[in-house]
Computed example of a mutant assay.
Amino acid sequence: MAAATQAGTLDGAALASLVARVAADRDRAAFKILFDHFAPRLRGFLMRRSLPPALCDDLAQEALLTIWRRAESYDAAKSAVSTWVYTIARNLHIDHYRKQARAARADLTDPSLQPGETHAADTLYGRTQDVAAVNKALTGLPEDQRRVLELAFMDGLSHREVADRLNLPLGTVKSRIRLAMDKLKTSLGEFQ
């Protein structure tokens, strides 16, 4: 296997060989050696950054998991294994810091961050029945009247835009909308 230094730590060539084995074969034994070597060192590195111990453990674990997942991205020509590993840990710390900073700047009164209004089940069921009744009433309209309503109310077009799209006079569009609305009022009279 790889040569170890007298202090019991692995040298650069041994570490590079282990990473290569993880990259090539997903070698669990090689990863265990890397894990045992780097886990306490990464934790110490992160502790020196004045992070809470639990966060140090989480970031060290995430760094080691990144090594497992992305071992094939290691390039021995660019850096030593230890440089690559510590860079991963440092970047994870920076990412964590940025997420915290964004969360601290979040405006908790922003309406988009507020939970939506909740309704009782009977209210939701009633709305479903209302939608079904409206859909049924719409299908009962003549095609020309339904089409102008769809363009005006569902697509949000003005009467002029509906007239232009359908190549109809503006007065015809307004008449068809008025007739369609009158028929819908009659069909849906119980909802008034």
Rank of each mutant, 00 (worst) to 15 (best):
A2M: 12
A4P: 00
T5A: 10
A16P: 07
R21I: 05
V22K: 10
V22Y: 10
A23W: 13
A24S: 15
A24T: 14
A24N: 14
R26L: 09
R28M: 05
R28A: 14
R28G: 09
K32Y: 00
F38E: 04
F38A: 05
F38N: 05
P40V: 02
L42M: 07
R49Y: 12
S50W: 15
C56G: 04
D57I: 00
Q61A: 01
L64F: 05
L65P: 01
R69V: 01
A71C: 09
S73Y: 13
S73Q: 15
Y74A: 11
A77Y: 06
V81A: 12
S82A: 11
Y86C: 03
I88G: 03
A89G: 08
R90W: 10
L92H: 14
L92D: 04
D95E: 09
R98C: 03
Q100I: 12
A106N: 05
T109K: 06
L113C: 01
Q114M: 12
L124G: 01
R127C: 13
A132S: 05
V134G: 06
K136Y: 02
L138R: 05
D144Y: 00
R146W: 04
R146T: 06
V148S: 05
L157H: 12
R160D: 14
V162G: 08
L166T: 04
N167Q: 08
N167Y: 01
L179S: 07
A180L: 03
M181C: 07
K183S: 13
T186A: 14
L188K: 11
E190P: 00
